[in-house]
Computed example of a mutant assay.
Amino acid sequence: MRLGIIGSGFGVQGHLAAALRMPSLDFVAVADSGSGRARKKLPELVQYVESWEQLPGLNLDLISVATPPVEQRSIVLALMQRSVNVLCEKPFGSGFDDARSMEQAAAFANKLGVVAFQYRYEKGLQELRDSYQNGKIGGVRSISCSWLTNGRRDPSSLWSWRNDKDQGGGVIGAFLSHIVDLLQWITGQNVSSVEFANTEILYPNRPLFDGTLVPVTAEDRVETRLILGAGIPADCEVSNCHTHSIGMQLIIRGEKGNLVYTHSPPFCPEDQFVHFQPKDGEEQTLFDGANDGRPPGDTRIASLQELYGDIRTRTVGGEAPDLPTFKTGLVVRAVLAAIAEAAVQERNVSV
């Protein structure tokens, strides 16, 4: 499978790193959205092209779009017109209308559209899902999920598009989009409503390189309660400006006990666990990432490799039931829109 990548941030740090580990991928070239920043980050022998518009002419089977959300729609629509399969980074455009346009374009072109919800391929989360679906805890009563890091806690951290709501910045798109996808994938139920949502900008201004302060318009923290289809409440809290970097925790509470997933910094395989806390008896370890067998380092890279593997399977006519398609992304985008509305209107919002 011949692959091209658009994006100088996670496109290089994540997607390129994953692709270079995969002999089954014929990696071809990297472009960016016109800034030229990708060229400076590429290892030797990796081809850079001046414009992403050149990539479709390289006879590629797949192009990964890892640009800021505000740029994703125009790029994806252009690629679909050139009849190219696309992997688009979350949150899948800057809003629901963007997502709908991209999903419709993929359907019209009859091409594969995938959203990079690679956490589905984390071994610990797969164990959590299997345990849940096999009835380990019986009927579910409630779910809670937190994802708390401090990567942007320093007020001197430079302003970027991630601090600009109009460009698709904020932790709702960056982090909560993954949580929404995971909740729906694990339980097999879509979010039906948002009971409440609170957002917070913890640092109202951030500096540019020259020290000029720029207003922050995208949220640093969000807290929300989602209601899954069967009436199950899921309380979520996300921040990248927390006092401590705690990581991700997902707890599913059931009639027979609790399933607890944790992944703590620096987010390597050995930092990931799944435990079962029975109503009666001692806690059991269902998954210990130290025994995962995956390469050391950031587990997102190995998960992206698994995602690319499923894309390759689909492009040759095979089955890949966990693959998060553009339809998946559209459903998640509808939930994110309801969360944003609930935060502004301060009321329950149906999805």
Rank of each mutant, 00 (worst) to 15 (best):
M1W: 04
R2D: 00
G4K: 04
I6A: 00
S8P: 09
G9C: 03
A19D: 11
F27S: 08
V30S: 04
S35F: 02
A38M: 06
K41Q: 04
L42D: 01
P43V: 09
P43R: 02
P43I: 12
Q47F: 11
V49A: 08
V49K: 06
E50D: 14
W52V: 07
Q54F: 14
L55V: 05
P56T: 05
G57H: 01
N59Y: 00
I63F: 00
S64Q: 13
T67S: 00
E71G: 07
R73W: 07
S74Y: 02
V76E: 13
M80I: 06
Q81I: 02
R82W: 02
R82D: 14
E89T: 12
E89N: 14
K90G: 06
G95V: 02
D98H: 06
M102G: 08
A105I: 07
L112P: 06
G113A: 13
G124M: 00
L128M: 07
R129L: 07
D130N: 10
K136D: 02
G139P: 06
R141F: 12
S142P: 01
L148Q: 04
R152Y: 14
R153S: 03
S156N: 15
L158H: 11
S160I: 07
W161S: 15
N163K: 02
D164I: 08
Q167M: 10
G168C: 05
G168Y: 00
G169P: 06
G170K: 00
I172W: 10
G173Y: 06
S177Y: 05
H178Q: 00
W185C: 08
G188D: 01
V194D: 03
A197S: 00
N198V: 05
E200A: 10
E200D: 12
F209Q: 14
P215V: 03
V216S: 02
V216H: 00
R221M: 13
T224D: 00
R225T: 12
R225W: 10
A234R: 07
C241M: 03
S245Y: 12
G247R: 02
Q249A: 12
Q249C: 11
L250Y: 02
L250P: 02
I252S: 01
I252V: 06
K256N: 14
K256W: 11
K256T: 10
L259H: 13
V260G: 00
Y261F: 10
T262S: 08
S264A: 04
F267V: 09
P269A: 06
V274D: 10
H275L: 14
H275E: 09
Q284I: 03
G289H: 04
A290H: 15
N291G: 11
P295D: 15
G297F: 15
A302L: 04
A302N: 15
A302C: 11
S303F: 01
S303I: 03
I311C: 14
T313Q: 13
G317I: 03
E319F: 12
A320W: 12
P321I: 03
P324R: 04
T325V: 07
K327A: 15
V331W: 13
R333I: 03
A334I: 03
V335Y: 04
L336H: 14
A340G: 15
A343H: 01
R347F: 05
V349R: 09
